[in-house]
Amino acid sequence: MKRWLPYGCIALLAVVPFAPVPLYYLHLAILILIMGLICTGWSLMGKFGLVSLGHGGFMGIAVYPMALLWNHYGLTPWLGAPIGVGLAVLLGVLIGYPAFRFRVVGHYFALITLALGEVVRLSIIAARELTGGSLGMTPLRVQPITDVSWYAVQFTDKRYFYVIALVAWLGGLWAWRLVNRSMARSALEAISEDEVAAASVGIHVTSQKLRITLLSAAMTGLGAIMLGQYNQYLNPNSLSGISISLEIVFASIVGGMYTMLGPTIGALITIVFRESLRAYFGATLTGMAETIYGLLLILFIIFMPRGLWGFVVARFAHPTGDTSRLEVAATR
């Protein structure tokens, strides 16, 4: 019974768009799946102690080239996307290789990635003739205008995007699972505990960290590409830089970065929570939703560092014993 549960859930998720779901909820579901993918990507690094405050950088460098190639050369996003993801991976190499080689860890790694996210954001703004600067840009509508264009990946019907996002998200979870089951996981855990000791028993610290960073960058870049393509709007402040980078970090933490579904749950909580508070307070109290959100973040990190889902898993799935590992990981 338990073995079939995941497949049942996937099947259920797959039929959602064909049920009479209000468009607004479908819209939220798409955003949650995409952010879930991005946060899952972030957590791959985060749970091994590589706390990046610059994942926005991977987003911006992936999505902008795709949109620009489409607008200027009519290159289909099916080709633009791999190019964008490739650029995100390349950026991962550029920052990751020297960082890991020179053993930049902890605070310093966080600050370097913070700078990276800003470099990408400011570069996009500086190239305002191409990118529209901080006003943002729109991918051109496919000509002649049709409701369904697979070539341009432009659909009037949200259900197409839902299915694409679902597939990508499942792919992200699959990658997470692969890493979790591989030898790399124990190597990375050893590294996050004691880098020098890990190196001394023959673990290649730099390459292990680099592989996980590249995977993370690719997932984040892919997420950004879907986000830009779905919204049909690109803005450097929401697709790069410190602001979105921190949002990714916090959604992952709220959900719990040590479990497979935690980051997605975090994305879900963040998006649903904000939307409902926004609906509740309306336009009268701008900022109220985020104020409560910020307060909750602080409380989460102090009282529930494993995140909500991590807490639930530790509490219910392993009521005896097995939580110790999570505890150790979470308090590091």
């Binding site: 966080a110 921190l246 916090f250 939703a289 985020e290 104020t291 910020g294 973040l297 602080i298 102090i302």
Partner: peptide
């Protein structure tokens, strides 16, 4: 560092 990141959101909003 992350907890003060929560503070960042809090103060902004």
């Amino acid at each position: 560092l992350l907890a003060t990141g929560g503070l960042l959101f809090f103060l902004q909003s």
